[in-house]
């Protein structure tokens, strides 16, 4: 069971089950589709899209930006590429949907940085203390939220 939090530390339900390898992309149903099968997503789909951190999001087709959810992947604790993918998606592609972080870096010690970069949902790594993480997002000011240049969302 993966735990999903929003920007304020509130629990969210995950409406996007991962698409199984043998399953076809449903027409009108929330499901998480891997980037390799992006082409199978129909127009006006409710699907979410899972992007590896090596995807060039500046070249992402417009159709992907119309999806309600993009999930960015952190394959290891210290690999920060998806932070900059998030900046590109928000600042250059003006992606209006939900941006979810998942993977090895979605931990207590990086939540504030993830939030500052514009992620709206956090799929906590399995070993995380849920209450501690929720508390961090809900109130505690931390060093990384006190930056001055620039003032981020």
């Amino acid at each position: 069971m993966s735990i999903l939090l929003d920007r304020h530390g509130q629990r969210l339900e995950d409406h996007y089950p991962e698409l199984a390898a043998d399953q076809s992309v449903p027409a009108n149903q929330a499901v998480l589709v891997p980037w390799a099968r992006f082409g199978e997503i129909p127009e006006n789909s409710k699907a979410g899209l899972l992007l590896p951190n090596t995807t060039d999001v500046l070249a992402l087709p417009e159709a992907a930006l119309r999806l309600p959810l993009l999930v960015l992947e952190f394959p290891s604790f210290a690999d920060g590429r998806a932070y900059s993918q998030a900046s590109f998606l928000l600042q250059r592609r003006h992606y209006p949907g939900q941006l979810r972080a998942r993977g090895q870096a979605v931990v207590h010690d990086q939540l504030n940085m993830l939030r500052s970069c514009g992620f709206t949902q956090f799929q906590l790594r399995g070993d995380q203390d849920i209450d501690l993480c929720a508390r961090l997002l809900s109130n505690q000011p931390s060093a990384s939220t006190l930056r001055r240049f620039p003032s981020l969302p």
Binding site: Y83, M113, A143, S144, L146
Partner: peptide, 16 residues
Amino acid sequence: ELTRQWATFHPEFNWL
């Protein structure tokens, strides 16, 4: 100093 303040806890560039 300005650059220091920008770089300090820059959320995007802490995992280069």
